[in-house]
Design a protein around this nucleic acid. Structure first.
Length: 884
RNA sequence: GGGCGGGUAACUCAGUGGUGAGAGUGCCGUCCUCACACGGCGGAAGUCGGGAGUUCGAAUCUCCCCCCGCCCACCA
């Protein structure tokens, strides 16, 4: 055996880091904003700086990387814009937790020191996820890496805020918002997760001032009664007609509450009366507005009852609820308590129960922008793929409400608004004003709130490219080609980028939005730390190699489905990487002295013709698949071809030529082999960058990176239908003989003879290319028989119209052969019956398209012929065994 | 309450246009044949969740039902 430069098995750890450094050093990820090549751009969904690479990132970025590498190899000018998100609340929480471990809280530090501390934290840990992305092979243009809080992006944020404010689309208003008493901030509606909970429905009696029974109201949150300023009934509710306009007494606080009539009240629910708490419920707030009821906030920002709560002041909301229920019961106001399932809002960052509360906040009026965003998709300016997500997108935008963008945290973009302490003027500006624009006072205080983290994310496609400057980047790369993301942030991010992009760039931010699945564990559960079912991508990469991992993700990324990751599957694809490795090893062992000629000789041998022809079909399929985001299709086509056509058939078929001494033939085949392998490597590179790069450099004639090699395009001149047809006969005959050998327990090393009988069109193929069959089926000879000369004692088979015989004089097990033929026949019969039934059906004959009928007739004939032959073979066998 | 996705071989999943049910893993048999045992060759294995309908023909289209998962929603 010749020596090989390659080890026997692929060792990922030995090559991955080397090639990543090579790519970076060669500057291959760099996009050229001045290039004249067609541009292809993707902005990364910026991972949180707090983040560790998880399966979601791994899938998301693998898919992006596949697209980018593929397009680059097609000669396009690819920009993959990377960066990270400051992730306001999430990051602040992480650093606060760290402080807590030191026995500190942020208030002790003060705002400035705390922010410094977060920046420090970011310096230390913020790069982690970037390095993990590199490990994954991500070919981002790192020279352009951005952070949502860096100088340029912060300016873009201010510019957008100021502009929207002056357009009247950002305003400040007193509203019921969602308040997280743990994060101590307002949240947008989207940031509240409703969860089904087992709660209680309390029936409370509010007596009349004259001491009579009054009204019974129902509530799930009895502590809010302290903020009640009225009781509402339906105007047409006969039961309560006499109460309207009168008063009832609020127990415990003995406040008089007006009874009002409002159509919002549902007569069917509970008792048909509604306690109105304008400061702690959005509907109540509206009712209060309609009827001029005061709004009394009874809780502070931390969820502790305030002075308005009278005797309950200072209690947290939970113990207050308990105490109130106790007191009401003690005083006879608690009528009844029922168990009640209902949905309760939780903070999406810390899972604390949300408190709806009246508060002055900043809002974006989004209706107009939402309309434009819907129109853009409706008009096809942006495609959402798979299409089913369009519906969700439209539904959300249709029902959208103004977006609360102010957060009472410290980490984030501080709202560029200043309040004059002397005249209450509000000044919104890019830079800090020197004095009040109305009263010239210089006693100005900046708004302490920061912006929702998603506000800056919404600008990502253009802020990362230098907006508001008119940059070459924007000119070349905006709108971006595609956005690749999970459906969990369709509303948070995608819809908002559409709004902002359309508003400020007057153009959609992306042509396509590809929505991929969520990664779950093998049981279909969402991976989470608390469930302990997290599979760490880094561990997987250590264990199986990055390429096997990426291939698995691609193979799993069927559209519109969850991805259930199983390690077994990854292991399977590690085997595939190894298979590719060994195919290359084999190739290299047999290419000694071969120079890459660059020109493929016209292939003459069937194996070469066939392989090259198939390769064109594969190249076509892979491109089509990647163009339409069918990553799994690309992966499976490549897997199938590489393993089961190239390795199993082609490599086996060319061995005699490679080992033989016909130099001319050998050289020709060597060139074809080299071309085949080289093409496979290039086709696989977007999915498996490392192993393909490593192997690429071992092949003769390759100087630079495979990253900049041409992606194979189908070459019509290499398509050889006739060759494929001939090969298919050769393969079928080979398989049939192998089947006989296997089933009849012929020793693998033993050589047998085989002969065929049939029409010349087929026998000529078999005889011309018989050497392949002889070799692959281990035959000592392959011959023709004439009619009437069929061998007596032989195992037999039928391939198309060919009868095939393997004489086994003396060793033929008649029983076994009988069983084998019966099996073949029984496989055929139902199929044949189906075809017969169809063809005797007048309706089928008259209504089905002619080509379908023809096809069916053809099938019947084919199967019928085959069956006849098999039966004849069986008969003969039976007769023979009777004699024997 | 509204909507979406899924239920195909023991397991995990493909099946994009209606016309002969596929892959990987696992399983059985066999072979350590000079690229690869992370391998080769051969084999077994599915009433395509249930029911009805449309059609010449349905895993695929329509309707109903069951089960699983998800999203949205202001009945206190």
């Amino acid at each position: 055996m010749k020596n090989s430069v390659l080890p026997k098995a692929y060792e990922p750890e030995a090559v991955e880091e080397k090639w990543y450094q090579f790519w970076e050093k060669q500057n291959l990820f760099r996009a050229d904003e001045n290039s004249s090549n067609p541009a292809y751009s993707i902005v990364i969904p910026p991972p949180n700086v707090t983040g560790d690479l998880h399966m979601g990132h791994a899938l998301n970025n693998t898919l992006q990387d596949i697209l980018c590498r593929y397009r680059r190899m097609y000669g396009e000018n690819v920009l993959w814009m990377p960066g990270t998100d400051h992730a306001g609340i999430a990051t602040q929480n992480v650093v606060e937790r760290q402080l807590a471990e030191e026995g500190l809280d942020r208030h002790q530090l003060g705002r400035e020191k705390f922010i410094e501390r977060v920046w420090e934290w970011r310096e230390l840990y913020g790069g982690k996820i970037i390095n993990q992305l590199k490990r994954l092979g991500a070919s981002c243009d790192w020279s352009r890496e951005r952070f949502t809080m860096d100088e340029g992006l912060s300016e873009a944020v201010r510019r957008v805020f100021v502009s929207l404010y002056h357009e009247g689309m950002i305003y400040r208003g007193q509203r019921i918002i969602n308040w997280c008493p743990r994060c101590i901030t307002a949240l947008a509606n989207l940031e509240v997760e409703a969860e089904e909970r087992g709660g209680r429905l309390y029936h409370l009696r509010y007596p009349s001032p004259d001491g009579t029974e009054g009204l019974v109201v129902v509530t799930t949150r009895p502590e809010t009664m302290l903020g009640d300023t009225g009781v509402a009934v339906h105007p047409e509710d006969e039961r309560y007609r006499d109460f309207i306009g009168k008063k009832v007494i609020l127990p415990l606080l003995n406040r008089e509450l007006p009874v009002i009539a409002d159509e919002y009240v549902d007569r069917e629910f509970g008792t048909g009366t509604l306690k109105v708490t304008p400061a702690h419920d959005p509907h109540d707030f509206e009712i209060g507005q309609r009827h001029g009821l005061p709004a009394i906030r009874v809780m502070d920002d931390q969820g502790v009852m305030n002075e308005e709560a009278g005797p309950y002041a200072g209690m947290d909301r939970d113990s207050c609820r308990q105490k109130i229920v106790e007191d009401l019961q003690g005083q006879g106001f608690l009528v009844k308590v029922e168990d009640y399932q209902h949905r309760v809002g939780h903070c999406y960052r810390c899972k604390t129960i949300i408190e709806p509360a009246l508060s002055k906040q900043w809002f974006v009026a989004v209706k107009q922008m939402a309309e434009a965003s819907m129109a853009a998709v409706r008009e096809g300016k942006t495609r959402i793929i798979p299409e089913m997500w369009e519906k969700n997108y439209f539904d959300w935008l249709e029902n959208i409400e103004d977006w609360c963008i102010s957060r009472q945290i410290w980490w984030g973009h501080r709202i560029p608004a200043w309040y004059c302490q002397d005249c209450d003027e509000v000044i919104v500006a890019m830079e800090e004003p020197k004095q009040c624009s109305r009263c010239s006072s210089n006693n100005l205080i900046q708004e302490s709130d920061v912006l929702d983290t998603w506000f800056s994310s919404a600008l990502w496609p253009f802020s990362t490219m230098g907006w508001p400057e008119k940059t070459r980047e924007l000119e070349s790369f905006y709108p971006t080609s595609v956005l690749v993301t999970g459906f969990d942030i369709l509303f948070f991010w995608v819809a908002r980028m559409m709004m902002m992009g359309l508003h400020f760039m007057k153009e959609v931010p992306f042509r396509d939005v590809y929505i991929h699945a969520l990664v779950r564990d093998a049981e279909g559960q969402k991976m989470s730390k608390s469930k302990g079912n997290v599979i760490d991508p880094l561990v997987i990469m250590d264990h199986y190699g990055t390429d096997a991992f990426r291939f698995t993700l691609a193979a799993f990324a069927a559209q519109g489905r969850d991805v259930r990751l199983s390690e077994e599957r990854i292991e399977g694809y590690r085997h595939f990487v190894n298979k590719l490795w060994n195919a290359s090893r084999f190739t290299l062992m047999n290419l000694e002295g071969v120079e890459a000629s660059g020109v493929l000789p016209e292939p003459k041998k069937l194996a070469d013709r066939w392989m090259l022809s198939r390769l064109q079909e594969i190249a076509r399929k892979v491109s089509t698949a990647l163009d339409s985001f069918y990553f799994n299709e690309a992966a499976s086509v490549l897997y199938q071809f590489t393993w089961h056509e190239f390795c199993d058939w082609y490599l086996e078929m060319i061995k005699p030529v490679l080992y033989g001494d016909n130099e001319k033939e050998r050289e020709e085949t060597q060139q074809c082999l080299l071309h085949g392998l080289s093409s496979i490597l290039r086709l696989l590179h977007p999915i498996m960058p490392y192993v393909t790069e490593e192997l690429w450099h071992h092949l003769p004639g390759n100087e630079g990176s495979i990253m900049v090699a041409d992606f194979p395009r189908p070459d019509e001149t290499l398509v050889d239908r006739q060759g494929e047809e001939q090969m298919s006969v050769v393969m079928d005959v080979t398989t049939a003989i192998r089947n006989i050998r296997g089933e009849m327990n012929v020793a693998p090393a033993a050589q047998v003879e085989a002969m065929v009988f049939g029409p010349e069109s087929l026998t000529s193929i078999v005889m011309t290319h018989g050497h392949y069959i002889e070799d692959l089926a281990r035959l000592s000879a392959l011959g023709l028989v004439r009619d009437g000369e069929r061998p007596r004692v032989a195992a037999s088979a039928v391939v198309r119209e060919l009868e095939l015989f393997v004489p086994l004089e003396g060793v033929l097990d008649f029983k076994e052969e009988n069983r084998r033929l019966q099996k073949e026949i029984s496989k055929l019969e139902p199929e044949l019956a189906r075809a017969q039934k169809k063809l005797t059906n007048d309706a089928f004959l008259s209504r089905a398209p002619a080509d379908i009928v023809a096809k069916e007739k053809n099938k019947l004939e084919r199967l019928g012929g085959k069956l006849d032959k098999l039966q004849a073979q069986l008969e003969k066998l039976t007769k023979l065994s009777g004699e024997g």
